[in-house]
Design a protein around this nucleic acid. Structure first.
Length: 695
RNA sequence: GGACGGUUAGCUCAGUUGGUUAGAGCGCUACAUUGACAUUGUAGAGGUCAUAGGUUCGAACCCUAUACCGUCCACCA
């Protein structure tokens, strides 16, 4: 044996031996224990966040496998709709092309080829980290059977009256060319001028004067005495594109304290105004769209047609000023603006007919399951956050205007329009005749599903489309493990769709890990240059060191700092393990009993109990700490030294080492396996398939 | 505006659900080296557990308030 442990000499060979042995597949014996892996983006290299989930999930899977459970860790990869199309468009841009240079089929095929070419990346890297997942069951979100299942779910939801098409204001990014759900919008505080405009007999305040061509009413608070006499009247306004008449309505939404207490209502371009319109449909016209999906003003804006929003705003303000219609400008005004989480551009609320899922009937079921403790959330207060989310959730917009995804199986009778009452047929293939309107001509839907719509079905679909009895055997799964940052966007939706599809919770426990931060507690990012690349770390210190550094002393739901110092320290443990084994195996075991053997065995047993309890309690950080300290400071520093003095027998020491290798294995699988292979022959050939010590 | 966290050693963090002198890693100080390991060992310095009250025989842990930090949500034009 070498004087120091060299991870690079062992890791690949050991991984191959594990995989070849079939240890990653659940055995036929034992109670099932299942983790469905959060599918990483198929074509993206891994970052530390991925390394984190691989580590934590692998710890639990290895532990349960050693406990004799039929442990299944089912891996997958994600087509990651918008993310991937965005990356691909960047690539096109570099080559001087854009997505608009290709028709849908061609573009889809190009992205498919691109993803196929890179799709091994994530999997190879997870293997490097020691992930003991069952790769024979790997699923991709665009696998034929997965797609088929997702299409059926949509049909089922529609048949159950839980899907509807409606014209609503959607969060539209004019740069990415698609709508987003509310959960994908970032709100940022921005300082924008608040303009006070003359508006007929009133003065009103707005930050968006360029939308005034879309105004359909003026609103005041019903209790506001100043304006009471105007309510219900039509006023005449002299505007930039001529005179027009507009009605004054009363709505509680208007805050008399804000600005002048008068608001212009532009239902096509503002979420609040849209809601006001919904309450006053009888009194005022509906959405009057003046900004188009390319982010430019349309013909209704007269001479401002063709200008982009910000340019139009400047021009409009300038002209208002010239005509004496601008009363004053409040430049100190701050408010929150919705921005695209992808590209950062301001989100434009635009009226678009989209498909929505009615969430209320579904969230109700999930809330009651939570209240009955059918699911337990581990992670610093995030159980409360989940409940909060379930209570406030709005209907889910699942239509996306991108090609990289699963096309919504809808056929519009005659032609697709933006009319919410448009007749359509839900069908995987082109229908012959519409049962409602009798149409025989159809236009296919081009919108695709929100990626998260298929992801929300992941625990169900991965098991239903896999080996024959998998769903019966492994569902509901034991544990869902992921970062708390995707609690609402993914975990909550899996609960919703899992309950809908199976009437059971998709998983019984949720372990939410924290975000990985750098040594100083700063967020890691490429631009800051403080991000560690997991593969570089593995190469330098070994996968075990990285794994242990990621999990050591962490608590569910709390961020944790990882720097090179910590990783080096953990690498030192792998060396310590190696050397303890080297020493113990140097001499032949003698079977004579020594004076402190009994005491030694008793303490060892206590350690086993403690680590086992901590893992059962879903406290991998604490378990790692316990086993680290007990191994290094008790076993090595005290007991090996005592053995040198003859107080502990070699046989006891060797047994102790075997126990520690088992306790350490879920955390540092490579070095423990490497050492196990050097020990005198035992019944259990591979440590990965060995039995957890008795408690 | 609301919700949820945090505040423990120089730094990064644990503290197993109220119970003896509060722990780890890194860093620091002194010593140790031909027999497992310098990717080491031994010894040590360093904390009135944010602050102020309260409950209790007993509080880092429970309660109340305050301060600061962080995250998320939110339709005030």
């Amino acid at each position: 044996m070498d004087k120091t442990y060299r991870a690079e000499k062992f890791e690949d060979g050991i991984y191959q031996a594990w995989e070849k042995s079939g240890a990653f597949q659940p055995g036929n014996q034992g109670k099932p224990y299942t983790i469905i892996m959060p599918p990483p983006n198929a074509n993206d290299p891994l970052h530390l966040g991925h390394a984190m989930f691989v580590t934590v999930e692998d710890i639990f899977i290895r532990y349960q496998r050693m406990r004799g459970r039929a442990a299944l860790w089912l891996p997958g990869t994600d087509h990651a709709g918008i993310e991937t199309q965005f990356v691909f468009e960047k690539k096109l841009a570099k080559e001087g092309q854009s997505r608009f240079d290709f028709d849908r089929q061609t573009l889809y095929q190009m992205i498919w080829d691109y993803v196929a070419k890179n799709s091994g990346v994530a999997i190879t890297q997870m293997k490097k980290l020691g992930a003991s997942a069952d790769w024979t069951r790997l699923k991709f979100t665009l696998d034929k059977d997965v797609v088929k299942f997702v299409l059926n779910t949509f049909k089922q939801l529609h048949d159950d009256g839980l899907v509807y098409r409606d014209l609503k204001l959607v969060n539209y990014c004019t740069r990415c060319g698609t709508a987003f759900s509310n959960l994908e919008i970032n709100h940022v505080d921005r300082n924008e001028p608040l303009y006070y405009l003359k508006y007929g007999p009133f003065t009103l305040a707005t930050v968006r004067p360029e939308t005034k061509f879309g105004d359909t009413a003026v609103a005041v608070n019903p209790k506001d005495k100043r304006y009471k006499k105007w309510v219900g009247q039509e006023i005449e306004v002299k505007g930039l594109v001529g005179k027009f008449k507009i009605k004054v309505i009363a709505d509680n939404y208007v805050d008399p304290q804000f600005g002048t207490g008068v608001v212009k209502i532009t239902p096509a371009h503002d979420h609040n105004d849209y809601q006001v319109w919904q309450r006053h449909k009888q009194e005022m016209p509906g959405p009057n769209q003046v900004i188009d999906f390319d982010g430019r003003l349309n013909a209704k804006a007269g001479k401002y047609q063709g200008l982009k929003v910000m340019a139009a705003r400047e021009k409009v303000v300038e002209d208002l000023k010239k005509q004496g219609l601008l009363v004053k400008v409040d430049t100190a005004y701050n408010h929150a603006v919705g921005t695209c989480y992808r590209c950062g551009r301001t989100i434009e609320p635009l009226p678009l007919a989209q498909f929505f899922i009615k969430v209320k009937p579904l969230t109700k079921k999930v809330l009651s399951a939570l209240n009955q403790s059918q699911v337990t959330i581990y992670g610093a207060g995030h159980d409360k956050i989940l409940k909060h989310w379930l209570n406030i959730l709005d209907d889910w917009n699942i239509s996306r205007q991108i090609v990289w995804g699963i096309t919504i199986p809808v056929w519009y009778c005659h032609h697709k329009t933006n009319d919410p009452d448009q007749c359509f047929v839900v069908s995987k293939t082109k229908p012959i005749k519409c049962p409602t309107c009798g149409a025989t001509e159809f236009e296919a839907e081009t919108d695709t599903f929100d990626t998260w719509f298929s992801s929300s079905q992941w625990p169900v679909v991965t098991l239903k489309t896999n080996q024959k009895d998998d769903f019966q055997r492994f569902y509901p799964t034991a544990l869902m493990e992921t970062g708390y940052d995707i609690l609402p966007i993914w975990v909550m939706r899996m609960l919703i769709m899992g309950m809908y599809l199976t009437n059971q919770v998709p998983f019984k426990q949720v372990y939410l890990h924290g975000l990985v931060r750098d040594q100083k507690g700063q967020k890691m990012s490429k631009s800051k240059g403080n991000a560690l690349n997991p593969l570089d770390v593995v190469e330098k210190y070994g996968a075990d060191a990285l794994r242990l550094a990621l999990v050591m002393s962490t608590t569910a739901g709390r961020d944790n700092s990882v720097g090179e110092d910590k990783i080096r320290g953990m690498r030192n443990l792998t060396n310590k393990i190696w050397n303890a084994a080297r020493y113990i195996t140097m001499e032949e075991s003698r079977f004579a009993k020594a004076s402190r053997d009994d005491e030694f065995i008793k303490h060892l047993h206590k350690v086993v109990e403690q680590v086992t309890k901590q893992l059962d309690d879903l406290k991998p950080g604490l378990a790692a700490e316990t086993v680290y300290n007990q191994f290094w400071h008790w076993f090595c520093d005290e007991q090996i030294e005592a053995a040198k003095a003859g107080k502990i027998s070699r046989a006891a020491l060797l047994d102790g080492l075997r126990v520690f290798l088992k306790l350490l294995h879920p955390f540092v699988p490579f070095v423990t396996e490497a050492v196990w292979q050097q020990l005198p022959k035992a019944k259990e050939k591979l440590l990965i398939s060995s039995q957890w010590p008795n408690t």
